[in-house]
Write a protein that binds this DNA or RNA. Structure first.
Length: 350
DNA sequence: AAACTACACAACCGCAATAAT
DNA sequence: CATTATTGCGGTTGTGTAGTT
């Protein structure tokens, strides 16, 4: 048996709100508040509306200090950065943009921002293609490998929470990523805390142990402050903690293979048949499916196969951060996920 | 000017989480 | 602890409008 409906659907008005309805709702809430019960509210006011509808109308349109339209470049950057980092968690993203609603941001992303981003990435892809034809790629790959080796050595030597770590000139694994700098680490860090994620540790316990030195956490949720740094992504490598000596090594990962060319994939996504994409991306659903399994208490029901093509995008952009973040949300942090290497990569759009 | 199309935004729906009983 | 009600969230759909043919 399903749940009882929250209201009598037959006697409830749907569709756009009239100015009169808006005025009634606004006036009542401003004088009396919501009373903590949206379901009862429309009856009190005399509105033939569902309580959910009233709530939505108030939150998205009527409440004070709501901004509509006119997103700034800075807001664009924040939205893109967060989307790439945490996916379509619009409420969390909205919490970082005062006056913006999750609905507004969601609409803005779906109708404009992702297209803007795609256009940009298409250009970059063309540039990249030209360089490939000039045999430039070989040099890039060579340099990238050298950088990765250097990074592994550096990361193994320096605790990630030390100031020295954050000042290291870490390599950029893909030349095209040089355009994407991390510009909002502090914001992301704050939002994690602001969204009641206290008690969460974003990197695994093994990793801490391996460093033979406890980070200066004041509580388990402390995320290293990484502001004003540019963080390369290492999404094509995964940190693996050895059972024998707890050492951390960075190995190429099939799970994340292909992510290193994320901007290109992002662009291609809209060009590829969605079914082909589903098949080709099966191996990339790791993070999202795991999340769903966990959130369903272990059931095997997943949403990834039900996604739209842009839903599939989630499995593409779900970085290890997200799996860890989700795992943490469920109070079940994963083992082989290293938050500080993989997360916090943001996009800066020019 | 009418028909059509694309776009932006508002609103709805269903599900999961949370609170209340 | 189990059940039920409510809230919050994200995906999707509906509607109005501007632009194009």
């Amino acid at each position: 048996m399903g749940r009882a409906p929250c209201c009598d659907k037959a006697n409830v008005k749907k569709g756009p709100w009239s100015p009169e309805e808006d005025a009634k709702l606004k006036a009542y809430i401003e004088h009396h508040g919501t009373g903590g019960n949206w379901i009862a509210l429309p009856q009190k006011i005399g509105l033939k509306r569902c309580g959910k509808s009233c709530r939505l109308r108030w939150l998205n349109y009527l409440r004070p200090n709501i901004k509509h339209g006119g997103f700034s470049e800075e807001e664009d950057n924040i939205i893109c950065s967060l989307y790439v980092s945490i996916g379509s968690r619009w409420s969390i993203i909205a919490a970082q943009l005062p006056g913006r609603t999750d609905n507004d941001i969601k609409n803005y992303w779906n109708t404009r921002l992702k297209k803007k981003l795609l256009g940009k990435q298409r250009k970059e892809q063309q540039i990249q293609a030209r360089r490939v034809s000039n045999n430039q790629q070989k040099q890039d790959v060579k340099r990238e490998n050298e950088n990765l080796i250097a990074a592994s050595e550096v990361i193994n030597q320096v605790p990630y929470w030390s100031a020295e770590y954050s000042s290291l000139p870490l390599p950029v694994t893909d030349v095209s990523f040089q355009h994407y700098s991390l510009n909002n680490q502090t914001s992301l860090r704050n939002l994690m805390v602001n969204n009641k994620l206290e008690g969460i540790r974003f990197s695994n316990d093994h990793h801490h142990h391996q460093q033979q030195q406890q980070p200066p956490y004041t509580n388990a949720c402390e995320i290293p402050s990484l502001s004003n740094q540019v963080f390369p992504t290492m999404v094509n490598h995964v940190a693996v903690v050895s059972d024998e000596n707890n050492s951390v090594t960075y190995q190429p990962s099939n799970i994340f293979q292909g992510f290193e060319n994320f901007p290109s994939d992002f662009c291609e996504l809209v060009c590829v048949n969605s079914q082909q994409m589903d098949r080709s991306m099966e191996g990339f659903n790791y993070g999202k499916e795991s999340v769903d399994v966990m959130s369903n208490g272990g059931s095997t029901n997943t949403t990834s196969t039900e996604s739209t093509s842009w839903g599939d995008m989630n499995s593409l952009v779900y970085s290890p951060l997200v799996s860890d973040y989700e795992g943490c949300r469920q109070g079940n942090p994963r083992d082989v996920v290293v938050f500080e290497e993989c997360n916090y990569f943001g996009m800066q759009m020019q």
